[in-house]
Simulated scan of single mutants.
Amino acid sequence: MSYPIAASGFDGFLSQVRTIQPLSAEREFELAVKFKETDDREAAHELVVSHLPVVVKVAFQYRFYQFPVQDLVQEGTIGLMKALKRFDPYKGYRLVSFAIWWIKAYIKNYILKSWNLVKLGTTQAQRKLFYRVGDIGEHASQESKDKRVKDLAEQLKVKEDDVIEMEARVRAREWSLNELMGEDKELEAIEFLQDPSPDQEEQIMQKETEQALPVVTEKAMEKLDPRERFIIEQRFLEESPWTLQKLGDHFGTTRERVRQLEQRALRKLRRELESSGAQALLPA
Results as ranks from 00 to 15, higher is better:
residue 255 R to S: 09
residue 68 P to T: 01
residue 48 V to G: 03
residue 21 Q to N: 15
residue 206 Q to V: 15
residue 186 E to A: 07
residue 110 Y to K: 14
residue 202 E to F: 12
residue 237 L to I: 09
residue 259 R to Y: 13
residue 5 I to R: 11
residue 86 R to W: 09
residue 97 S to D: 12
residue 135 D to I: 06
residue 11 D to L: 01
residue 257 R to S: 05
residue 164 I to Q: 08
residue 254 T to H: 05
residue 281 L to W: 15
residue 111 I to L: 15
residue 94 R to V: 10
residue 89 P to V: 08
residue 241 P to R: 11
residue 146 D to A: 11
residue 204 I to P: 12
residue 80 L to F: 03
residue 96 V to C: 10
residue 9 G to M: 03
residue 184 D to W: 04
residue 62 Y to F: 14
residue 7 A to N: 10
residue 45 H to S: 13
residue 267 R to V: 02
residue 6 A to Q: 03
residue 112 L to P: 09
residue 58 V to I: 04
residue 232 I to L: 04
residue 280 A to E: 09
residue 5 I to Q: 12
residue 157 K to W: 07
residue 185 K to L: 07
residue 179 E to F: 03
residue 255 R to H: 06
residue 126 Q to T: 00
residue 95 L to M: 09
residue 153 A to N: 04
residue 82 K to I: 03
residue 88 D to M: 08
residue 152 L to S: 04
residue 4 P to C: 00
residue 72 L to I: 06
residue 79 G to S: 04
residue 100 I to F: 05
residue 193 L to W: 01
residue 99 A to C: 10
residue 45 H to L: 14
residue 223 K to E: 13
residue 88 D to K: 08
residue 61 Q to L: 05
residue 274 E to G: 05
residue 106 Y to R: 12
residue 279 Q to R: 04
residue 173 R to Y: 11
residue 158 V to Y: 12
residue 144 S to W: 02
residue 99 A to H: 13
residue 225 D to E: 10
residue 3 Y to C: 07
residue 173 R to C: 07
residue 154 E to I: 04
residue 179 E to W: 03
residue 16 Q to G: 03
residue 274 E to D: 07
residue 195 D to S: 06
residue 126 Q to F: 01
residue 87 F to Y: 15
residue 283 P to M: 04
residue 96 V to H: 11
residue 252 G to S: 09
residue 39 D to R: 15
residue 86 R to T: 14
residue 204 I to Y: 14
residue 85 K to S: 12
residue 145 K to F: 00
residue 271 R to Q: 08
residue 10 F to E: 01
residue 247 L to G: 07
residue 74 Q to G: 08
residue 241 P to N: 13
residue 9 G to K: 03
residue 168 A to C: 05
residue 138 E to N: 06
residue 32 A to W: 02
residue 193 L to R: 00
residue 144 S to T: 04
residue 171 R to D: 06
residue 166 M to L: 11
residue 68 P to Y: 02
residue 276 S to F: 08
residue 273 L to K: 00
residue 123 T to S: 15
residue 82 K to E: 09
residue 18 R to K: 06
residue 131 Y to D: 05
residue 3 Y to Q: 11
residue 31 L to K: 01
residue 76 G to E: 01
residue 102 W to D: 13
residue 13 F to L: 01
residue 254 T to C: 05
residue 246 K to C: 11
residue 248 G to L: 10
residue 127 R to C: 05
residue 154 E to L: 04
residue 264 R to F: 02
residue 112 L to Q: 14
residue 272 E to V: 03
residue 206 Q to F: 15
residue 3 Y to E: 14
residue 54 V to S: 11
residue 124 Q to S: 14
residue 202 E to L: 15
residue 175 W to Q: 06
residue 61 Q to W: 06
residue 12 G to Q: 00
residue 172 A to N: 07
residue 263 Q to S: 11
residue 223 K to C: 05
residue 45 H to P: 08
